[in-house]
Design a protein around this nucleic acid. Structure first.
Lengths: 226, 226
DNA sequence: AAAAATATTTAGGCTTATCTAAAAAATTAT
DNA sequence: ATAATTTTTTAGATAAGCCTAAATATTTTT
């Protein structure tokens, strides 16, 4: 039986929620007017499937859609997406703080947990965890009202030679990337100094934990510093 | 060993898991050979849908099915079902012990949480909760290997006049029933004495918390005592 | 501005899990 | 043992969410 009979305000399927979340994340980067193709790429699906789904979501008034012109979330859609993000990040904190998960293990499980429908569950979890402001990857956790602090941060790849920054987040939460960081002792709160920058390929030689290592542009493009 | 075998429990859909769980619970009451109709009733679906699904589950070798003869879980099917029950009950303990849920609020949320797929999650949750043996309704929680202690218990409705028992479980975890129990101060561990039994309708007058109350047969049929 | 390339939508199908209605088998009653 | 009833299965339909292939619209290149 359908759950939204009980929780009228939670009337989205798992698939619809994933679309909303993806569009939300894309809007955070590219602003309004998200293309069909970019959504398809993000969700690893086909553009035709995206067209089908955005028509449905437009009817539910969580986004605005005009043929060939991309989509934008409405206030309602953004609220819904923010709730999903809130759930995802709170569950990640739970897994790391309470269940001994490492930061590279939480993403896939949180992808499932974020779809659990119970307003009480998520708000009590927030209380239980002590109202955390950040998830294990340094991303902000929206509060009950959907507000969160946007922290100052820039990509490590934009830091000038001889300057120092503190790692405050990552741009990729995949297990592979995070394991790479672990292997190289790069973690949140860590001081990183750029010793030199290779102009040909953008690779950086950095000082971390009093050790020199060289990282590719792809890596430095996925590390946020402050 | 093949990879899929290690994660064999990953290959069931939410719907398949619900069928397995229902058949498991029905077998606990009625033994092997569960009828199509009883499964349909339990899952609030149609017999024809059940026939379709049990054919599919038989192909996956989690149950044995012969036309017109009902179904029985295989070892594999029982193991899978036990895992789902383990997850359901551990999540219920989590909700009550850590998130301030009352015992009448946990069932629906646990119905969702039990389908989250992550072996590490459930075993770490077990550790975090201190390896609980019982859920908030007095039902035993299977351990990692699927073993659990079957506790001695009988229905309150079978207790003779003037005898006393201790409430150790309930046979219905619906919010309505549990709220009724709360209202009448009936909870796990509570001493209950049967003062008199009405032979016409089976209703009982019981002494609980030094107070006399009368409960219907339907109620006493859903309370387990020891 | 026309041609080429790219992006998006439409049309038609597939799969899963459900349903209703009808047929078939099993059980119960007479 | 036959008729009536109940249970179960089959047949065919539906909806969600995805797919491929083809058509159409938009953008870029020349």
């Amino acid at each position: 039986m359908y759950l939204w009979h009980q929780y009228y305000n939670y009337m989205f399927s798992l698939s619809e929620e994933n679309y909303l979340k993806s569009i939300y994340h894309l809007e955070a980067i590219h602003g309004k007017g998200i293309s069909t193709n970019s959504i398809a790429k993000k969700l690893e699906t086909k553009a035709s499937s995206v067209t089908d789904m955005i028509k449905k979501l437009a009817e539910k008034e969580v986004l605005v859609y005009k043929k060939y012109q991309g989509v934008s979330l409405t206030i309602l859609g953004r609220k819904e997406a923010t709730t999903i993000v809130r759930k995802h990040r709170l569950w990640e904190v739970f897994l790391v703080d309470k269940l001994n998960f490492s930061w590279d293990e939480v993403h896939d499980v949180a992808e499932q947990l974020e779809h659990i429908k119970s307003p009480k569950l998520i708000d009590e979890l927030d209380v239980f965890l002590g109202f955390p402001k950040m998830d294990p990857h340094g991303d902000p956790i929206p509060d009950k009202e959907g507000n969160f602090q946007k922290i100052e941060k820039r990509l490590l790849s934009t830091l000038e030679e001889h300057k120092t920054g503190i790692c405050v987040g990552v741009n990729d939460s995949s297990s592979d990337f995070l394991k790479y960081l672990d292997k190289n002792n790069i973690s949140l709160g860590q001081k990183i100094k750029v010793l030199s920058k290779e102009s040909f390929d953008g690779s950086l030689t950095i000082l971390i934990h009093s050790k020199e290592i060289t990282i590719s542009k792809k890596i430095s493009n996925n590390i946020y510093i402050q």
